[in-house]
Design a protein around this nucleic acid. Structure first.
Lengths: 258, 258
DNA sequence: CAGTGGTCTAGACCACACT
DNA sequence: GTGTGGTCTAGACCACTGC
């Protein structure tokens, strides 16, 4: 549990290979990460105070602060002055979907209200080669495939299919998805203990096939954004592959560069 | 020049309006920002050491560090241990284009080598309503419009038009653009003292018109990404509006979410 | 070697939230 | 008031770079 400060500068330097030096605050960060991953601290709950953690790990408050700072920048923790530090969650994100970068062309985000979600189905099937590659499984391993449509102001805008490893999501059904009122990632947190922590997206322009065009109520030949998302839990474990088709008639994918 | 530490906690609190409290390190950050904007420190050059700055502003090194830390996170400064802190530049970005998120579907970034740039033209004209809105000008104000094609491995992939306010870019010509070997933003830094600091992009799926399709060597009806970029200098001043058409036959727009 | 940024500490005080 | 995170300081020492 406790970390001996004396091991700070030189822990794994004996073997001839790399330097393998890691600062104390990085070691603390790893310990915090372990506590997050193990579920010791639940989504949305407060973690111990900085002084408590400093005492627990036998380091100064400043060192704990630096570790927490980095986890806050990575959106794993949320600091609230006067109240404490909390485990980040998708459940209370003011913007309803933290990973959804689609914004209406006119009006602000709240003008069109919450999305209407329509679950098409949730099937158990065997991973294709492509799905297996993304999720770090073997082809043929059992996966769940969810299909749904999101509409904004009654206008269908997003058609997406997503694949989840069957193991961690055992028991997920279309009915459960339909009855849940909130972001899907919030359901994953509360029901399956899976927190999506970061994601990578690959975006292309495509034309839909007849079935896709029908579901999105667009004419055949209408160009759409294809958004392929791979979402990760802790330790960079891929946990969801998602294939989305976005109509950009009245919306755009918004991105900030710096 | 120097900041009196005694004014740290309460500078503008007299007027009845807002709290207007800002921590010391934020004030230091503003001063650093001023020095960057005024050109006191050139692109790529080293700024004074932390101890020098601490002495200049009469604060502790830690306070300067925190200010620099934030500017480094925003990619305005670059820290290099043992050497110093440097003004960020687009000239020495190992990845040739810092704001270009297009990546090849297969192979790494270096596999296809540097882009072949073809400047189509560079015209002086009057800002349309849309361009004026983006660049915070008045419709009819003089702007420069540059058009070019980027090809990767001889395959034309990006067609883009960009608009610049004529004033700050006085003297920019197609010939100057053609003869410059390096990112356009690097030329803007060295020739016009304009550093692009951040940008916002809006992405949609579109089909090109006949002329666009011909320039990109794609069949009519091929879906393309439309990437509208607004780039800013210091103080959030918009300085470039760019309209790009990306072919996603062999590439994709890559984005990281966290 | 000197100079730079990077880490760590210990303590003081401030701003904010709850009770 | 008490407890939380946020700021600021002063000083020590480490790690990296280049002379």
């Amino acid at each position: 549990m406790a970390v001996d400060p004396s091991i700070s500068t030189d822990t794994l330097d004996a073997a001839g290979s790399g330097p393998a030096f890691s600062p104390l605050y990085q070691q603390i960060k790893s310990l915090l990460l372990q506590s997050l991953q193990s579920g010791e601290w639940k989504s949305g709950a407060a973690i111990p105070s900085e002084l408590d953690l400093a005492a627990r790990y036998r380091v100064s408050q400043g060192t704990v602060r630096k570790a927490i700072d980095e986890l806050a920048v990575e959106n794993l923790l949320v600091r609230r002055q006067g109240k404490g530090t909390f485990v980040a969650t998708h459940a209370e994100d003011h913007v309803q979907y933290r990973f959804l970068k689609l914004a209406p062309d006119a009006g602000d985000l709240s003008s069109e209200g919450p999305a209407q979600r329509t679950i098409i189905d949730c099937k158990r099937l065997r991973a294709s080669a492509e799905v297996a590659r993304g999720l770090a499984l073997r082809a043929g391993d059992p996966v769940l495939q969810v299909s749904r449509v999101l509409a904004f102001g009654a206008v269908p805008t997003i058609l997406e299919h997503l694949w989840l490893p069957a193991g961690p999501f055992k028991g997920l059904t279309a009915e459960r998805l339909r009855s849940y009122d909130g972001p899907m990632y919030a359901l994953f947190e509360s029901e399956f203990g899976v927190r999506m922590v970061r994601a990578e997206e690959k975006i292309r322009a495509v034309v839909p096939d007849a079935e896709q065009a029908a579901l999105l109520h667009v004419a055949p030949g209408t160009p759409l954004l294809s958004v392929e998302r791979l979402a990760f839990t802790y330790k960079d474990t891929p946990m969801e592959l998602r294939q989305g088709l976005y109509s950009t008639q009245n919306h755009h994918y918004r991105n900030a560069l710096s």
